[in-house]
């Protein structure tokens, strides 16, 4: 179908976008990559009165590493993260997750900020941001505030952003030297919508023991979630197949009613979450070992 009519405003800066959002109120939506919003407009599931197009705001597209922090501008295309070799090393999992956000043409347009702000429970980047302890920067008419990823996702397509706030960037502390990360998902078709996904970051100490581990899961609840019980199982231990299996069991057991839909039953999602936790931990630990 064709989208309903709307009033269109091109914002050439983040501040201009924030001003337009404040001026037009609750009927205004931010248009970034459009890979979810325009689809929903075409299907007439949403009909915003005003679209504030942030694509001209080039200042929002960047990937920077400085002072131990990685900052990614909200307008950075998923394909840019996927192909950014400076993220190799401890952030390989972020590249892997970006490389699986839909197909090439979707990644060419879809943005990091859009993937987070759309807050789809099955999206790839939210669990990665949970595992990387990221914070989201939101700009409103009163200035910037930061929201931890743990507090950002409130429910399916619901976030802590106020209606007139713009997600401008995501920041995360670089994992320690010698950490490894991975993202793995299962979908019915290659790069199709994920049934469930797992992101893991594993840091090893000098003796090869696991000094830190963080795990994020997608597709198993109303938002992406941390798999803390699985993290507790592995921290302080040495990597082994048995350990990953124990973590898988802990992750699966701790889930609160994974959803059932046409793609998979809740029971299957619970099983899958465990399998993915084990695989993501194994891959992240393997990468960490190679780097040490």
């Amino acid at each position: 179908m064709k989208p309903p009519s709307f009033r269109y405003f091109a914002a050439r800066s983040a501040d201009e976008a924030v001003g337009l959002l404040a001026e037009h109120g609750a009927g205004a939506r931010v248009l970034a990559g459009g890979q979810s919003l325009v689809q929903e407009m075409n299907a007439r599931r949403v009909a915003p009165e005003v679209l504030v197009d942030v694509n001209p705001a080039a200042e929002l597209a960047f990937v920077r590493q400085e002072n131990g922090t990685l900052s990614i501008g909200a307008l950075t295309r998923t394909s840019q993260v996927e192909s950014d070799a400076t993220l190799d090393g401890s952030l390989t999992g972020l590249r892997e997750a970006a490389a699986r956000v839909g197909h090439v043409a979707v990644r060419n347009r879809g943005t990091v900020g859009g993937n987070l702000a759309h807050a789809d429970p099955a999206a790839n980047l939210p669990p990665v941001m949970l595992a990387l302890d990221a914070e989201v920067v939101a700009r409103g008419s009163g200035g910037d505030r930061s929201i931890s990823a743990a507090n950002f996702f409130l429910g399916p397509h619901r976030t802590a952003l106020a209606p007139a706030e713009l997600l401008t960037e995501v920041r995360l502390p670089l994992p320690p030297e010698g950490a490894g990360s991975a993202f793995i998902e299962v979908s019915r078709r290659d790069r199709g919508w994920g049934i469930a996904g797992a992101a893991a970051v594993v840091a090893l100490d000098r003796e090869g023991g696991i000094s830190d581990a963080r795990i994020g899961l997608s597709g198993v609840g109303p938002t992406a979630v941390r798999a803390r019980p699985a993290e507790e199982v592995v921290i302080g231990e040495r990597p082994s197949a048995e350990l990953w299996k124990a973590a898988a069991g802990a992750a699966a057991a701790a889930l609160d009613a994974p959803p059932s839909d046409v793609h998979a039953s809740g029971r299957y999602r619970r099983h899958l979450a465990g399998v993915l936790v084990a695989r993501a931990l194994a891959a992240a630990a393997d990468r960490a070992e190679r780097r040490n």
Binding site: Y8, A10, L31, G34, Q35, V38, Q39, N42, D53, N55, S79, V104, A105, V106, N108, R109
Partner: peptide, 18 residues
């Protein structure tokens, strides 16, 4: 699918004004 500045995009998910 068409190319916009050399990159493939879904032309059904982009407005002409963009």
């Amino acid at each position: 699918t068409v190319l916009v500045d050399g990159e493939s995009v879904r032309s059904c998910l982009m407005f002409a004004v963009q």
